[in-house]
Design a protein around this nucleic acid. Sequence first.
DNA 1: CTTAGGG
DNA 2: CCCTAAG
Length: 672
Amino acid sequence: MVLQKRLDYGFNGYQVPPIPRATRSARRRGIIRRKANGDGTCPFDLLATVAGKLLGEGESSPDSTGSARGKEQNAIVKDEKIKEKSYAEGCYERGFFISELVSQAPVVNRSLSELPHAQNDTISGPASVTMSSDCSEKFPFAKQFVNGESREEEHGVFSSCTLDTESDKQIKIELSNNAKVSTSKGAAISSSEFPDVWDKKPSTLLVTSDDSVKLSLSPYPAPCRSFPVIRNDVKLDNRDDDENSGCTQPSTPNKASGSAPRVRDRPIKKLLASKYWEENLKSDNEGHANTGGKTMHACHNRNSAYKHQRSQRDFPFKKRKLFKCGSFSNSDGEMSTDGICSSPTSDLHGNASGYSKASSGGGTAAGTSVFNGGRASFKPSDSCVKFRIKSFRVPELFVEIPENATVGSLKGTVMEAVTAILGGGLRIGVVFQGKKVRDDNKTLLQTGISHDYKLDALGFSLEPNPIQASPPLGPDCRSCVLPCDTPQPLTRCLSPAITGIQQGRSDDHTGTSLSNFVESDRDSAPSPHYAALEKISANSRALVPVTAVNAEALAVVPLRKPKRSEATQRRIRRPFSVAEVEALVQAVEKLGTGRWRDVKLRAFDNAKHRTYVDLKDKWKTLVHTARISPQQRRGEPVPQELLDRVLTAHAYWSQQQAKQQMKQPSDTYLLL
DNA sequence: CTTAGGG
DNA sequence: CCCTAAG
């Protein structure tokens, strides 16, 4: 048995890098453009699989004339803004795809079952995948929560993971220190429940069926303290008898898990799932140079989020240490996840030091078997680092679709895009102490990621697959991975984007600004407003201590209104090309300075992004450029010949203007 | 809305 | 490029 220390990290969210925005014209054409995804070797494959299923079979498939959307189908969105908005607010909601996925439970089930089973691995403990969605929410996009737990004795990969789209969507990951890096990456997907909080009010519905898995939603009673969010867990179980795949109605709210339809936890499933992911991750990660990470933010709120699509381009993500686990020392191999690692509370309070010592000695046996029981797992002795992924935001997608397309097709298209991304577009990057950890085979301990380390130095990033990576941001964007600061101020943990999302409903300002932001983006063209993004990224805290995610945070965070507000995004800089300069010079030579509107019409009528003010400014800079030494000039060199003409024309028209000036005054004078 | 200029 | 005053 191997003693392991576990680490728990909380992820607040991921931000996915935006995909280059299509030009306006392109947008008009209405075609979706998204990057093809690479191979599906990412942790999200599972999701992708599900999504794929959806697309293929689900009613929700895009083009399908889904009955559900009947009303909407005929609706045609004519206004670009509207379209974007809808995308932004609707389609992109992660709730959207996730919920969709969930609804397709059967698929999930299948995926899991299909996962290769590692023979060597021993799995113990609960292996159940829990998905929950909260129907209570009006939000069309149900929130889903997926919780999977798996355990591997020998490797102790990760215990469990939770994917929650709830307002606080989070994914929690637990790893043992011995876990390999790759594992950790994979782990991101799994999470465990927090005993304390969650268990208290387990309203879990189990849904199962052979082919289909059903989801039930029952809101999790809001945790008293730490988790403000309400969760509903649905567990998926394979039942032969159950053929129905539909989603169970949320009606049965709180059945205790026990009483519930019965949950057969199949450790195997979980394990498989985890393994599956892990493997994918490994393969994916290996050999790939890490390119600029992109971060994905999860959208917490229905509304908000998507206004920032552009910004999604990079997403840094951060993590924080929930609480100091350091005290735990560990344990052996336990992988029991739930108990120990999961619940922040317990860790924080009681277990810590005491256990560690005690257990470290001989905990082996316990560790292994622990898992079966489920609760038993509570061995405090492990030192773990907890991760909590608060949410995922879908990376910016480009969608162009004909105006006469149906809403259904739009949805489908978006789904497709999302699926593609999940399927192969992302990789997980680990950054520790400012360096990317490329060696997937190192253990966390070897890497230095241990419970007693400052997790602040650890960061995760979602990176686009090189293949489909979106260009926009430079390869090196520091902003991609941001380590979290100290866990202290919860408020600080929330990035504007996230915050906005979370509070979107309540905070009008935020919403507005976000939307505006988007709008401006649109106008501006190709490149995203990086600056804005960067800002957001910088401030955002993808990872947050689990404890952090609470009411406190939620309650507090009045989003600070973006000062200049994203709404007023600066237009992107677009250097004038030599050709443009040529056209400008020619026009000015003919029309003179002072008639910028005419110049615009004459030479730049087609360049919507060039306003007459821009032309005037450019002329101003050209004159300046022409007067300085070539060595002092920057940017694309302008042929001297043009600069000479600039000076000549400028001199000429200045003279003309002067003449006019002279005349006027004189006339006036004369009049007087 | 255009110009003109400063920032 | 932005912002603004001024026409």
